[in-house]
Design a protein around this nucleic acid. Structure first.
Length: 332
DNA sequence: AAAAGTAGCAACCGCACGTAG
DNA sequence: ACTACGTGCGGTTGCTACTTT
């Protein structure tokens, strides 16, 4: 364990000695108490005055990522995961920027999530996590599944995510999720002209989310298929896709260029309206398997770590190969 | 039960940027 | 305009816990 950079015996050297490695309870207490009295800022000065033999950078990092009272611990909710996936496709590795949208989550945590969970899937598929192919998989498979989970929690547990997490009141009366923060205003060039009042509305309309009851009946489609035909207005969640270059956009409902994509698509309309049609998912055999299945990766299922759901690696491979073989036409 | 492998995460590092002097 | 300093960011490392063999 690298707890100290060096050990010295003289007091004068002790003064200059900087600790590294894991923080002790005593150091945490010192930092918390100092900031409680004097506030943040001037971290190098803060480190000295607080009696911490740490660099200012180290103190800042410890405070922001761990000690700050509003730092939220625990697994990322489906809503948060959805936001991360979406915002990453929009902003790239701008972790701090993404973290601003997720209250209580740090850029480090989001970065770790991306590297350990998302990139893991890309490695399994042997494709670049930043490739359009993988983005397409995320948008066509992963995000709909997260939406399904969100939708499921809406109908079953009344979207109680933040209620549970922070006791903040949530307004579910109109199916609006009030627990997510307002997205920061984008720079002018990034803002697109909304066709709806709220540019970040992600509305799945009753007719658009054509989830068949057959899906509910289908044992094979307990995964990504939305289970409800209710509208779900999520004002503060950014739309799943609004990028001109996103492959998400070019998947055409009426196109049969790719059989798989056709059966599992998310169609993005101009602005403010995200139309998600998972109607035929069960036809394609179900993108995911039921939570009850617990196959290993060797037997064809990858644990996809957003809860208790799994991906079917065979179909991911099919999806990937279709793209690589060009069957998806100009989609990519 | 032990060794090996893997995943998750806290912490560090180097660089870039902003600002005061 | 230049320099030094403080801060923020993204990438990387290394430790620990857990899982698999």
């Amino acid at each position: 364990m690298r707890s100290l950079t060096k050990s010295t015996s003289s007091s004068s050297e002790d003064d200059c000695e900087l600790r590294r490695g894991p923080w002790t309870l005593e150091e945490d207490t010192l930092l918390i108490h100092y900031i409680a009295r004097h506030g943040e800022g001037r971290w190098n000065l803060l480190a000295q005055r607080a009696g911490l033999r740490r660099t200012g950078k180290s103190c800042r990092l410890r405070w922001l990522n761990y000690l700050k009272p509003d730092v939220k611990r625990g697994n990322l909710s489906p809503q948060e995961q959805l936001l991360i996936l979406d915002l990453h496709s929009r902003w790239g590795n701008r972790w701090s920027k993404i973290a601003q949208v997720l209250p209580g989550r740090t850029d480090n945590e989001i970065k770790n999530y991306w590297r350990t969970r998302v990139q893991k899937q890309a490695r399994h598929l042997k494709i670049d996590a930043n490739s359009t192919q993988f983005q397409h998989i995320i948008r066509s498979l992963w995000m709909p599944r997260l939406l399904h989970k969100i939708d499921g929690s809406t109908s079953t547990s009344s979207m109680s995510y933040y209620n549970n997490a922070s006791s903040q009141p949530a307004n579910y009366g109109s199916q609006h999720l009030t627990f997510l923060p307002q997205l920061p205003k984008l720079p002018q060039q990034q803002q697109e002209t909304p066709s709806h009042s709220n540019p970040f509305d992600m509305t799945m309309t009753k007719h658009a989310i054509e989830l068949q009851d057959q899906n509910a009946d289908s044992e094979q489609c307990t995964g990504p298929c939305l289970s409800s035909t209710e509208s779900l207005n999520i004002p503060e969640i950014p739309r799943v896709s609004q990028y001109p270059t996103s492959p998400f956009h070019v998947i055409d409902n009426n196109s049969d260029r790719t059989t798989f994509v056709k059966d599992c698509f998310v169609e993005s309309t101009c602005y403010g309206m995200e139309t998600i049609n998972l109607a035929n998912m069960s036809v394609s055999g179900g993108v995911g398997n039921s939570a009850g299945n617990s196959h290993t990766a060797e037997s064809g299922w990858i644990g996809c770590d957003f809860g208790d759901t799994l991906w079917n690696i065979d179909e991911l491979w099919q999806f990937r190969n279709l793209q690589l073989s060009g069957e998806s036409g100009s989609c990519f």
